[in-house]
């Protein structure tokens, strides 16, 4: 930096005359605030395409059962499909430990005070993970129905998970997350007889926000509906191979 005027010209030792613009200038930008994240997300997407990896971004409120759904899926399908997992949490490696126990490759990202994963974090996590070709990568986002909605990670599909112990009006309260997702999993349906959750109303709200949303009803505890989720994963893998 030039010590005389503070400008960022490093090629000279003395203060030779160089061009300054000390007049008022308007700079038209129209630059997307999320451009950097979106560019890195496209880079991740290119990596996934080249290696034929189905990357899924799993989003939900805390406690909807994302990790339980993953544990169950990995145990049930690991002889059929190669998996790897990126776990996002503010603190601890508890979730990564649970995934590791299933024998699956996993990287934990701790966001500290951060409320979401971004494409840059995924880029670095991928370097350590080394997912195999023709595999599925689950990215379990930070439990939060607000902030992760804005951040493209390069995923192929965004899967939003809700559970019947939450209010059925979550889609209306947090519309952005539902609007940007392509599949909605309603979890813990084994608890329906014990909670006042109105399943039909929930589906109506989901479709108000995202009319084309596919909805699957599952229970990770008794296994109900999980086969439809597995079929969905298999069909996405086939689509990937054809493309």
């Amino acid at each position: 930096m030039c010590a005389t005027c503070g400008c960022d010209v490093s090629r000279h030792h003395h203060h030779e005359p160089h061009e300054h613009s000390h007049s008022r200038t308007k700079v038209d930008l129209q630059q997307d605030i999320l451009l950097e994240n979106n560019s890195l997300a496209e880079r991740n997407r290119g990596y996934f395409q080249a290696k034929n990896i189905l990357a899924l971004n799993l989003v939900s409120a805390p406690g909807s059962g994302k990790t339980s759904l993953l544990e169950r899926t990995l145990k049930d399908l690991n002889r059929e499909i190669d998996f790897s997992v990126i776990e996002g949490d503010q603190q601890t490696t508890h979730d990564a430990d649970r995934i590791h126990a299933t024998g699956t490759k996993v990287v934990q990202i701790n966001t500290g005070k951060g409320c979401h994963l971004d494409a840059h974090m995924i880029l670095h996590a991928l370097q350590g993970l080394k997912s195999t070709e023709n595999s599925i990568l689950f990215i379990e986002n930070v439990g939060n129905l607000v902030c992760p909605a804005m951040f493209d990670l390069g995923e192929k599909e965004r899967v939003v998970i809700v559970s019947v112990t939450e209010g059925e009006d979550k889609p209306l309260k947090y519309p952005d997350m539902f609007h940007t997702s392509t599949l909605c999993i309603i979890n813990k349906i084994d608890l329906l007889p014990y909670v006042p959750y109105n399943l039909e109303k929930a589906k109506e709200y989901i479709h108000q926000v995202k009319p084309e949303m596919q909805i699957l009803e599952v229970s990770c505890t008794n296994g109900e509906g999980l086969e439809t989720w597995y079929q969905w994963l298999r069909s996405k893998m086939v689509q990937l191979e054809i493309a």
Partner: peptide
Amino acid sequence: LSVKSLVVS
């Protein structure tokens, strides 16, 4: 969500 313009001097 964008930065439309700046006025710099």
